[in-house]
């Protein structure tokens, strides 16, 4: 009981930032999604290490456009982060603007990536490399689209004035997912675009 008495301190109530259940749940979700990409890349390297085909079939990948696209995706993460900082300092308009910019950059990534897909001379059924390339980048594209829907919802909720500097856990949690989508792209990009230069 002695222990009980000393806890007579005020506690936050409800979804308070990183103390909320959602934050912990998102971390767990990211661990399992990260594992999924781990197994995807394992499959890529497992099959690549044993293949006797041209790998990639069209020769070494061009790095310019995918490189720029990578930077676009990463910069969108920065704006999501800025958006959250703006809520903390009660600059709600800047927060909304920053989130909107992040969404636009995310959409740019999708458009450029779709263009990349279009330019390939093969599809996912043509050869083993195509199966891997389109499945892995397709999985990532799916995550980007889910992430964009999340960002759009956050933008809507910010616009509706749901959040202020006291309660904004949804932005923290949704933002974390977007950062994950961006970080995992670095692994996909390194595996599919950079490692072919090593052998």
């Amino acid at each position: 009981m002695a222990e009980a008495m000393q806890t007579a301190q005020a506690l936050p109530a409800g979804s308070e930032g990183k103390r909320s259940g959602g934050w912990w749940g998102m971390i767990a979700l990211i661990v399992t999604e990260g594992s999924l990409f781990g197994y995807l890349l394992f499959s890529y390297f497992y099959l690549a290490s044993q293949t006797e085909q041209h790998w990639p079939p069209e020769g070494l990948p061009d790095l310019l456009i995918p490189g720029i696209n990578t930077l676009i995706l990463l910069s969108s993460s920065i704006f999501v982060w800025i958006s959250e900082r703006c809520i903390q300092s009660r600059q709600m308009r800047w927060s909304i603007a920053s989130m909107a910019l992040a969404v636009i950059l995310g959409v740019c990534f999708v458009v450029i990536q779709l263009h990349e897909w279009n330019d390939k001379s093969y599809d996912m059924a043509a050869n083993l490399y195509g199966s891997l390339y389109f499945t892995i980048t397709g999985f990532h594209m799916l995550h980007v689209i889910v992430g964009l829907i999340i960002l759009l919802l956050l933008l809507l909720w910010l616009g509706l004035g749901y959040f202020d500097n006291r309660r904004y856990a949804a932005v923290t949690i949704g933002g974390l997912y977007w950062h994950f989508v961006d970080v995992v792209w670095l692994f996909v990009f390194t595996s599919l675009y950079l490692t072919p230069y090593l052998y």
Binding site: Y39, F42, S43, Y46, L47, Q50, T51, E52, Q53, M124, A125, N127, L128, S131, L132, T135
Partner: peptide, 20 residues
């Protein structure tokens, strides 16, 4: 869909299934 992950003729590996 016609991909080739486990398709021996086109470079796929049945053992990948067993590993995963």
């Amino acid at each position: 869909i016609g991909t080739h992950f486990f398709d021996v003729v086109n470079g796929g590996k049945p053992l990948l299934w067993q590993h995963l």
